[in-house]
Design a protein around this nucleic acid. Structure first.
Lengths: 212, 212, 212, 212
DNA sequence: TATGAATGAGCGTTCATTCAT
DNA sequence: GATGAATGAACGCTCATTCAT
C-alpha cells in the first residue's frame, strides 16, 4: 500500500471506513456481551463468539488484541447501556422519591431478568474477571450506584425514607436485583412479571417503605 | 501369623488407617473448598489445589476420582458446616422472632465474611457449576433457607413481621448476605464488625423491623 | 465487494480450499493408518502421529475431534482401499474359480505383506479397538469376505472346490493371510515373493485344490 | 535381621518359605496371564491384577520388579502349560499321523477357545509386546511348533500328507488356530463344539486330508 | 479484511513405580 | 511380606494466540 493511498484513507474515505469498523466492533461486542453474560468469562471461548457472529476466530483478532480486551469492551457496553436506560427512565418521570425509586428498581430488575440474565456474572462476582476488568467493573458499578444513591439520599432528606446506612442499603439492593434472574428468568410470563413486582416491593422495604 | 493375631492387629490397624485417611480427605476437601470459593470451579486447577497441600496433582486422585467429585465434596462440607453452625446458634437461644432472626442473619454474615469469603461463588452463581453439583447446591441451599423461613413465618404469624412475600424476602436476604464478603471482608477489624452490624440492621428491614 | 464478485471469488476459493483440506486429511489419515497398523490403537499416541507429520499434536484436532475419530478414518481408508484393489483385480480377469481364487489370495497376501504389514492389527485383533471402531471393522471385513465367499461358493457349485464349511474356510483363510506379514515382510526380495506364492498354494488346499 | 538368623533361614526354614513364595508367584502369574490374555499388554494395569488377587499394587513389586517382568512370566507360564497339555495328549495316544494330527489340532483349538481366548493376543501379534517378551514368545512358539512339525513331517514321509511347504503350513495352521477364539468363544455350547470340529476338519485340508 | 491452519501451553486423568511403615 | 500413600511422566484434549495468504 502506497503512502499516498494511506494519506487518502486517513481523511475522507477513512471516515466511512471507520464508521463501518465501529459498527462491526459494536456487533462483536454485543454478541460477546451476551455470551459472557450467559456463561461467564472462563466458560466462553472465542470459537463460540466467532461462530455466533458467523466469522472465524482469527477475524476477532483484527478488532481485539485478546480475549481480555474483548471482555473489557463487552462489559463496558453492557454497563453503559444499562446506565443509559435507567437514566432515560428517570429523565422522563417526576414524582416523590419513593415513586421514582420504585420505578428505578423495577426497571433495573426487568432489564436484568428479561434482557441480561447474563449480567449477574459480571456485577455479582467481579473476582471472576481478570484484574484489567476488575477495576472497570468497579467504576461502572459506581456510576450505576450513583443513580440510586442520589434518589435514596433525596428521600432520606425529605424524611420519606428510613435507612440504616445508605451505602449498605445500596449494596444489599444491588445484590438482590442482580441475582433476581436466578429465580425469575425461567418463569413463564404472567408469573415472571409478578415476581419482578414482588422483588420491587420487597426492596422498597430497605428504605422503610411498607408494602402496599 | 495366627488368625487371632490377625484379628487383633489387622483390624485395629485398619481402623486407625481409616481414620487417618478420613482426616487426610478432610484436609484436602477443606483446601479445595477454599480455592473453589475464591476463584470458582473453572478457574481452579488441580495443580493449585495440590500445591497448596504440598503434594502432586496425581496424589489427589488417590482420594478423589475426578475434579467434579472433589468439588462435590467441597460443597457438601461447606454447606453442612454452615447449616450446622446456624442450627447450633438457634438451639442455644430464645427470644422474640425478631431477636432470633437478627442473631441468625448476623451469624450468617459473620461466617460468610470471616470464614468463607469463598462461598459466594458456590451459592450465588450456581450455574457456574457442573450439573452434578448444581442439584446438590440447590438442596443445600434449601436446607439452609429452611432455618430462615421458619423464623420469618413465625414472626409473620405473631404479627411482628411485615413481608411482601416470604419467598422473595428469603431470596433477597440470601443474595445480600452471600455477597457481603465482597465489600466487608477486606475491611480492617473494627470497621468490619460495624459493617456486619449494618448489613444485619438493613436486612431486618426486609421484614419490616425498623432500625434501632 | 459486490455480490457477484463474491460469488465468483469466495466460492471457487472455498472449493480449492476444500480440496486442499481433503488432501491434508488424506495425508494425516494415511500416516495414522500406518502407525495404528504397526503398533495397535493403545500403543499409538497422537504425539507420534503428529511427529511423523511434522506438526504438533494440537493440529490434528483441527481435522479430527478425537483419537477415536482419527482411528475410525484410518480404518475406513485402509479397508476401502484394500477392497477396491481386490475388486479391481477380479473385474479385470476371467478364468475358472480356482484361477481367480488363487489370484485373489495372492493379491491379498501381497498387499498385506508389501503395503500394509500394518493391517493385521486392525483385522486380526478387533477387540483391541474401541467399540466405535469395532463395529466398523466388522462391516469392512464382511464386505471384504464377500469377495472371497462368492468365489468359493461358485467353485463349490461347479464341483471344483471341496470344503468343510464355507464360513470356516473363510475365517481360516483370512487369519492366515492377515498374519502372513509376520513371517514374510522381513524377507529379502526373491525369498519374499516365493513365500507369498507358498502361502497362496497352501491356502488353496483349504478348498481342496492340491499343490501344483 | 541378624546374620545367624539369615543363616538359619537360607537352609531348612527357607525351603518351606521358598516353596510358599513359589506358590504365591504362581498364583500371581496365572492371574496375570488371564488378564493379559483377555485384554492385551497395554490395556491391563497392575491395579487390575492386584485387585483380582485381592492384594495391593505395591505387593506385586515384592515378587516382580516391573510390569514387563510380570508379563514375561505370564507368557512363559501360558506357553509351558499349553505345550505340556499337547505333549501329554500325544504321549497318551497312538494311530496314524493323520489321526494324531487331527487330535492335536482339535486339542489346540479347544484350549484356545475354552481356556485361553486370551492367548491370541500373545501369539498372534507379538509386536504388541515389549522387546524383552518378543524373543521369549518366539522361542515358546517354536517349541510349540515342533510338536506339529514332527507330526507333519512324519505324515509326509509316510506319503499320507501332501504339503506345499511344511513351514508355511505350520504358519497358516497356527494363525487360524490362534484366531479361532474370535469367532468360536462366544458361541453357546453345542454350536461351539461343532465349530471347533469344523476348524479341525478345515485345517486338516492343509496337509491334503479331505473332509470326512 | 478475513480465513484456514498451525502452535504451544495448560489441564484433567492414568498408571507404573517407589517407599516408609 | 504387605500396605497405603505418593510421585512424576505421559497422554488426550482444549483453546487463546499467531500468521501466511
Amino acid at each position: 500500500m502506497g503512502a499516498q493511498q494511506a494519506a487518502e484513507e486517513t481523511r475522507p474515505a477513512s471516515a466511512r471506513v471507520q464508521r463501518k469498523r465501529g459498527r462491526r466492533i459494536q456487533t462483536i461486542v454485543t454478541t460477546a456481551a451476551e455470551l459472557f453474560g450467559e456463561r461467564g468469562y472462563d466458560a466462553v471461548n472465542l470459537e463460540d463468539v466467532a461462530e455466533r457472529l458467523d466469522v472465524t476466530k482469527g477475524s476477532l483478532y483484527y478488532y481485539f488484541s485478546s480475549k481480555d480486551e474483548l471482555a473489557t469492551a463487552a462489559i463496558e457496553t453492557l454497563g453503559r447501556e444499562w446506565t443509559a436506560r435507567l437514566e432515560a427512565l428517570l429523565a422522563g418521570m417526576s414524582g416523590t422519591p419513593a415513586e421514582r425509586l420504585r420505578a428505578l428498581i423495577h426497571e433495573h430488575v426487568t432489564i436484568a431478568v428479561r434482557d441480561h440474565p447474563a449480567a449477574l456474572r459480571v456485577f455479582l462476582v467481579p473476582r471472576e474477571w481478570p484484574d484489567a476488568q476488575h477495576e472497570r467493573i468497579k467504576t461502572l458499578r459506581q456510576e450505576h450506584n450513583r443513580l440510586f444513591r442520589t434518589l435514596i439520599e433525596e428521600g432520606v432528606a425529605a424524611g420519606e425514607f428510613t435507612v440504616t446506612s445508605v451505602g449498605t442499603v445500596l449494596q444489599c439492593m444491588h445484590a438482590a436485583m442482580s441475582q433476581a434472574p436466578l429465580w425469575c428468568s425461567d418463569l413463564p410470563e404472567p408469573a415472571r412479571s409478578r415476581a419482578i413486582d414482588e422483588v420491587t416491593g420487597t426492596l422498597m422495604m430497605l428504605v422503610g417503605i411498607a408494602p402496599a
